[in-house]
Design a protein around this nucleic acid. Structure first.
Length: 754
DNA sequence: TTGTTTATTCTTTTT
DNA sequence: GAATAAACAA
């Protein structure tokens, strides 16, 4: 059953949302009150607005208390913003809304109910790094060869089980083939270890919440009573565990509202299941489906490009995005000689845009992988073009920051052996492998954690020279624990701790470039913590640690009023910019060569490009390079196969490679030298058959750009005013000196430069 | 036990 | 090219 607005929108004056400009379809979705709702919201169709209005309507019109609403968003930032807007609309304080990412909402539930799962409320949340080190330890302890089963692979397999909410005790190793059998054994040990150190990884937050509800029907019932309404944003990126969760919470009331766009499903690799949205109606019978097709974000030129990109995918929910926004700028596709030229020229183009009045923070460069950011950072720094890089090496993933956090974690959770092992010898305290082994044996015998052994004060199990270090640690933690108990502000605890341990001295003594940056980072952490303590009076150190580990890249993003933005396309989900540059659109990068052989993954790559394209409001520029400096050698590249699916009339093609002045950069091979040689993949052998891209992109004969003067045998001299198509099909629009405007096929026109 | 050198491996996207 | 692990010297 589908409604496009006109039928189901009774013009009931519902004062609460009268202040929100909504079109018919949006309004219909907001005021519908007849059971489960699925809203297909195309890119830029006002999804957030609908979601916000819906919550406001629930509170203001349906009289549901904020406390009884569960809303899952994709970032915490989005949650904060929505909270603000709902507050503005309803005039009621909305602090009690359950709104946030699935992970934070689950963490909140799990802290309250921890004991039912055999956890303490103070459990630690392990990030990807922590997971790897925990897994390495498990594998080592089980005396399995790390090369036979790489930790990451084991984690990947376990993550699949957790996504499906299959606990290790439901798996029978005897019934599985060898490799799987080992994985199951490892899964068991890993789970045991996390329990022992009182930690949950990201997947645990979701599946443990599901286990909680499965095993405790009364608890489930109490949450079903609590959450009278469940809303989910970006539903296309939910995984099975999240589906179970939603099904548990809303299964009885059927009071559920989900928004999403199957065309923007880009997290399949993380376990997201596009079937969740495509089969929503099966899971929630009686679902009413709404479709938002009017795009308010992009110009027709951008949207046409986007529509042709996504049209290449077959299995999609039918929808046609349209816009009434006109705009003068055509989409441009540019060919560059190499990554460096690409970054340079994009920098120049951005400067040009900004000079023309475009605010820098509304400009964004998007790429497929984090590694690609480097070229831009270098170029922009050279050009003194301010930028902010979102994502990449996250602040909280830096060594020194992780060290600080490990110290703090140990105060909150003394059972966290992993954090203990991380910092026990940083700065050096004479504790090496030998000492750790001794401590572990003693801890195991006493049935307690490493830190607890230290706190006992009996160091007879370790060698002489390690005793001093152990005693130091004991003194440190005894003292710090007393500060914390006495209610010393968190930032003071941290700074006291770092001075006391000599960590600061360690960095100050080392006058390398990095240690300077590290000191700065630690300062920044201290500032963050100070500000946080001020803004969150009454909250504990443990709350800070949780917020930090569940923070998304976008959450930490602060727009600077003079800086342009750099980020991956994944990171850009849900965001919009006036001008978007999509860089590195090459086969092997987007789509990633790692997904060449999997049809569904390739469809996801295409959706990723679609997401990138639809971030643009006014200006969209795509680019690819002929060769790229990758992995220590120059690799020839060809344009993304997705570009070939876009009909030429939808964009202007511009070739800047041929016009780039010959340059002899220190480490770059000359283009011709490479182009002439046999094409070699970066591994030294062609392990993937090279996609046979039509060579018209790279044909050296087609080298024209807008503004160039040429001479034609019959028509004389003229100036190129626009280009469309590629290679053999490249069409030039030329204004000749006689005033005539002619469209010519470049391949046949036989033009000369003049 | 610690710090240095050399070898080796591996490259996507993130809560 | 970078990050990590193993090997080695002090």
């Amino acid at each position: 059953m589908t409604t496009n607005g006109h039928l189901a929108a009774p013009p009931v004056p519902t004062s609460i949302i009268d202040n929100v400009p909504l079109n018919d379809a949006q309004r219909a979705a907001v005021v519908y009150d007849g059971g489960p709702q699925l809203v297909f919201a195309g890119a830029g169709s006002g999804k957030t607005r609908v979601l916000t209005a819906k919550i406001a309507w629930l509170i203001g019109h349906k009289r549901i208390t904020p406390h009884n609403i569960f809303a899952a968003t994709f970032t915490n930032k989005a949650a904060q913003e929505m909270k603000q807007r709902v507050r503005a609309l309803t005039g009621s304080p909305c602090d009690s809304l359950w709104i946030g990412t699935f992970h934070s909402l689950c963490a909140r539930i799990l802290r309250r109910e921890a004991s039912r799962l055999g956890f303490l409320p103070s459990f630690t949340i392990y990030d990807a790094d922590d997971q790897v080190s925990a897994m390495k330890k498990v594998i080592k302890e089980m005396e399995i060869d790390e090369r036979a089963i790489p930790p990451r692979q084991a984690l990947g397999a376990i993550s699949k089980y957790k996504n499906a909410c299959t606990p290790p005790e439901d798996l029978d190793p005897a019934a599985a083939p060898f490799f799987q059998r080992e994985i199951i054994r490892i899964y068991r040990e890993y789970a045991r270890m996390l329990k022992r150190v009182q930690a949950m990884d990201f997947d645990d937050l979701l599946c443990n919440a599901v286990y909680l509800f499965r095993k405790n029907p009364p608890v489930l019932a109490s949450y079903q009573d609590l959450f009278r309404y469940v809303l989910v944003d970006e539903y296309q990126d939910t995984n099975l565990a999240q589906f179970y969760l939603v099904k548990h919470l809303a299964g009885r009331s059927n009071a559920i509202f989900v928004v999403g766009d199957d065309d923007q499903s880009i997290y399949g690799w993380r376990g997201a299941n596009i079937e969740n949205i495509l089969s929503f109606e099966k899971a929630f019978p009686g679902t009413h489906t709404f479709t938002l097709e009017q795009n308010y974000r992009s110009t027709q030129a951008v949207l046409r490009f986007a529509n042709t990109v996504i049209a290449g995918n077959t299995r999609r929910a039918e929808k046609k995005l349209w816009t009434s926004r006109s705009g003068s700028a055509r989409v441009r596709v540019t060919r560059y000689m190499d990554g460096r030229q690409e970054a340079d020229c994009i920098g120049d183009d951005i400067r040009e845009l900004v000079r023309g009045g475009m605010p820098a923070p509304l400009v964004c460069v998007l790429f497929r992988t984090n590694a690609q950011s480097r070229a831009f950072e270098e170029a922009f720094r050279r050009k003194q073009l301010p930028y902010v890089l979102i994502g990449a090496v996250g602040f909280y993933e830096r060594k020194e920051i992780k060290d600080c956090l490990a110290y703090l974690r140990l105060i909150v959770n003394p059972l966290d052996d992993l954090s203990f092992e991380r910092i026990a010898n940083v700065p050096p305290r004479g504790l090496g492998d030998r000492a750790f082994k001794d401590l572990r044996t003693a801890a195991r015998a006493a049935g307690c954690s490493l830190l607890q052994i230290i706190l006992k004060g009996d160091f007879s199990m370790v060698a002489d020279r390690a005793r001093k270090g152990c005693a130091d640690l004991r003194e440190l933690f005894t003292e710090v624990n007393s500060w914390n108990a006495a209610g010393t502000a968190p930032h003071e605890v941290l700074s006291g701790m770092l001075t006391r341990t000599g960590y600061m001295d360690m960095l100050q003594g080392d006058d390398s470039e990095e240690s300077e940056g590290r000191l700065e980072n630690i300062n920044e952490l201290m500032n963050t913590l100070t500000i946080w303590s001020g803004a969150n009076e009454g909250k504990a150190l443990s709350d800070f640690l949780q917020e930090v580990s569940l923070e998304t890249d976008v959450d930490r993003w602060q727009k600077r009023d003079d800086a342009v933005n750099l980020m991956t396309m994944h990171c850009a989900k849900g965001l919009e910019f006036k001008a978007v540059f999509l860089a590195g659109l090459e086969d092997g990068i987007l789509p990633s060569r790692l997904n060449f052989d999997d049809e569904e993954k390739m469809a996801e790559e295409r959706r990723l490009l679609y997401v990138g394209v639809t971030r643009a409001m006014d200006v969209l520029r795509c680019s690819y390079a002929e060769q790229r400096w990758r992995f220590g050698s120059v690799t020839p590249m060809s344009p993304s196969r997705f570009l070939h699916d876009v009909p030429p009339e939808v964009f202007d093609f511009e070739d800047r490679a041929a016009f780039h002045p010959a340059r002899e950069p220190a480490h770059h091979t000359r283009r011709n030298a490479v182009a002439a040689g046999p094409s070699k993949s970066w591994r030294g052998q062609d392990d993937h058959p090279k996609y046979d891209a039509p060579d018209h992109f790279t044909q050296e004969t087609v080298a024209f750009r807008i503004g160039q003067y040429i001479t034609h045998k019959n028509y004389g001299r003229g100036r190129i005013v626009s280009l469309s198509g590629f290679g053999k099909d490249l069409q030039l629009t030329i204004v000749f000196n006689d005033g005539a405007r002619r469209k010519l096929m470049a391949a046949f026109a036989n033009l000369e430069n003049s």
